[in-house]
């Protein structure tokens, strides 16, 4: 599906406030590979994910997507999905409505494809039983499943996930592993900040350990 995707990041510098959070970082990923970010709190995992998504400006560095340097993140945004600490859901909407709007905001082609993608996503994460209740009434783990359904329904090659295993039980963690596996099968790329063992085949997994940058 996304066979030609590849991502390369080099000389990546990011400042937050007056602090150098990331310095001279680099890695590259080809289709079907996952990068697991590990490191202590404050080592810059979230900042790295957010800077790759273009939410946080980089001080310096190059990001190449499909061998083309990315300067304007607007083009990259159509190719990536970012899932932060907390699932971005509206408490007053049902799970299904949340997924529908999240997908529609990214530019719906037709109502039929939209519905099909939403249904497929909800079914895959096993949320059909509770997705018509307001999100307000769902447990933290159920909310995360709804967020996974949206992520899958976006149908974009690059997934950026910040602590995706939070609030998940054993079954949920297995679901996460399967979702990532399927995404990699399709040629997608995943960058996940988590200490959880993702249980992926070794040839698919790269690890990047981040350390807090000391003032020089």
């Amino acid at each position: 599906m996304y066979k030609d995707s590849n991502l390369a990041v080099s000389r990546w510098h990011v400042f937050r406030g007056e602090r150098h959070v990331l310095r001279g970082l680099g890695f590259s990923l080809t289709a079907g590979r996952c990068l697991q970010l590990v490191g202590d709190n404050g080592s810059g995992k979230t900042t790295l994910l957010r800077s790759i998504a273009g939410l946080v400006p980089r001080e310096e560095g190059e990001l190449r997507w499909g061998d083309v340097p990315v300067d304007d993140f607007a083009t990259l945004h159509a190719e990536l999905a970012y899932l932060g600490h907390d699932p971005p859901l509206k408490a007053d909407l049902s799970g299904r409505e949340n997924v529908q709007f999240a997908v529609a905001v990214r530019g719906a082609r037709s109502a039929a494809t939209l519905t099909a993608r939403v249904e497929a996503g909800l079914q895959r994460v096993g949320a059909l039983g509770f997705c018509d209740r307001p999100v307000r009434t769902l447990s933290a783990g159920q909310r995360r499943r709804i967020a996974f359904a949206a992520l899958r329904a976006f149908e974009v090659p690059l997934w950026l996930m910040d602590e995706p295993a939070t609030h998940l039980d054993v079954v949920g963690c297995e679901l996460l592993r399967q979702l990532i596996d399927e995404h990699l099968d399709a040629g997608g790329i995943v960058i996940a900040a988590t200490h959880q063992d993702l249980g992926l085949a070794p040839h698919r997994l790269q690890r990047l350990a981040l350390e807090e940058v000391r003032a020089s």
Partner: peptide, 14 residues
């Protein structure tokens, strides 16, 4: 507060 605005920025739409 719930991160929706962030998703808007990342939506690939203007």
């Amino acid at each position: 507060a719930d991160g929706t605005l962030e998703q808007f920025v990342l939506s690939g739409q203007p």
